[in-house]
Simulated assay, not measured.
Amino acid sequence: MPIERALTAEQRSALGDFRARWAAIRRATAPADRSAAEEAVRLAYQAAGLASPARIVWCHGPMALAKLAGRISRDDGRNLRARLVDDVHRDVAASVAARISRRMLAAVESAVNPDDPLAAAATEAVTRNVPEKNLSVLGQLRRNGLSWSGLLEALVAPRSFASCTAGPQDLSWLGAFDYVRELLGLRAETEPLRGLMQLATSVGWLQPHEHICWLAERPNLLCGDARDRLHHPSGPALRYPDGWSIWAWRGVEVPRWIIAHKDRITLAAIDAEIDVQVRRCMIEIMTPERYVALGGATRIAEDETGVLWRRNWLAADAWAAVEVVNATPEPDGTRRHFFLQVPANLRTAREAVAWTYGLRAEAYAGLVMRT
Score class of each variant (00 low, 15 high):
Asn326Phe: 14
Ile285Ala: 02
Thr287Trp: 14
Glu253Leu: 05
Ala315Trp: 15
Gly295Cys: 08
His231Ala: 00
Val324Ala: 03
Thr287Ala: 10
Ala318Phe: 14
Arg335Asp: 03
Val324Asp: 00
Gly306Met: 10
Glu210Pro: 00
Thr287Gln: 12
Val203Phe: 08
Ser245Pro: 02
Val252Trp: 10
Ala320Cys: 09
Thr298Cys: 08
Ala301Arg: 02
Ala260Met: 10
Thr334Leu: 07
His209Lys: 08
Leu314Val: 04
Pro241Arg: 02
Ala260Asn: 05
Glu323Lys: 01
Leu267Tyr: 14
Arg250Glu: 10
Ala248Leu: 03
Ala216His: 05
Leu206Asn: 05
Ala301Gln: 10
Arg218Ala: 00
Pro241Met: 10
Asp317Leu: 06
Cys213His: 02
Val292Asp: 05
Leu314Lys: 04
Arg310Met: 07
Pro233Met: 06
Asn220Lys: 01
Ala268Gln: 15
Arg279Leu: 06
Leu294Asp: 15
Ser234Asn: 11
Ile212Asp: 02
Leu230His: 02
Ala297His: 04
Glu273Asp: 07
Leu314Tyr: 14
Ala320Pro: 09
Ile265Phe: 03
Val254Ala: 01
Val276Asn: 04
Glu330Pro: 01
Leu294Lys: 13
Gly204Trp: 12
Asn326Met: 14
Arg280Pro: 00
Ala248Trp: 03
His211Phe: 15
Asp275His: 14
Glu210Ala: 05
Pro329Met: 13
Trp205Ser: 07
His232Phe: 06
Pro331Leu: 11
Arg256Ala: 13
Arg227Lys: 15
Glu323Cys: 03
His211Asp: 11
Leu215Asn: 07
Ile212Val: 15
Leu294Ala: 14
Thr287Asn: 13
Met282Glu: 01
Leu308Pro: 02
Ala226Gly: 06
Ala272Glu: 15
Leu215Trp: 11
Asp225Phe: 05
Leu314Met: 08
Ala272Gln: 10
Val292Lys: 04
Pro219Gln: 07
Val254Glu: 09
Ile246Cys: 08
Ser202Leu: 08
Pro208Gly: 05
Ala293Met: 12
Val203Asn: 00
Thr201His: 06
Pro208Ser: 10
Glu330His: 12
Gly251Pro: 04
His232Tyr: 06
Met286Thr: 05
Asn326His: 15
Ala226Arg: 12
Val276Gln: 10
Ala237Arg: 01
Val325Lys: 13
Pro219Asn: 06
Glu284Tyr: 11
Thr334Arg: 09
His211Gly: 06
His211Ser: 09
Val307Trp: 13
Thr305Phe: 14
Trp319His: 03
Asn312Leu: 14
Gly296Pro: 09
Ile300Asp: 03
Thr328Glu: 15
Leu230Pro: 00
Ala248Glu: 09
Asp228Ser: 12
Ala226His: 12
Leu238Glu: 04
Lys262Tyr: 11
Ala293Gln: 15
Tyr240Trp: 15
Pro233Trp: 14
Val307Ala: 01
Glu330Met: 13
Asp271Val: 07
Ile265Met: 01
Arg336Ile: 08
Ile283Tyr: 01
His337Lys: 14
Leu206Arg: 03
Met282Ile: 02
Leu294Ile: 09
Gly333Arg: 05
Pro288His: 14
Tyr240Leu: 00
Gly224Val: 09
Glu289Gln: 12
Ala320Met: 10
Glu323Met: 08
Thr298Lys: 14
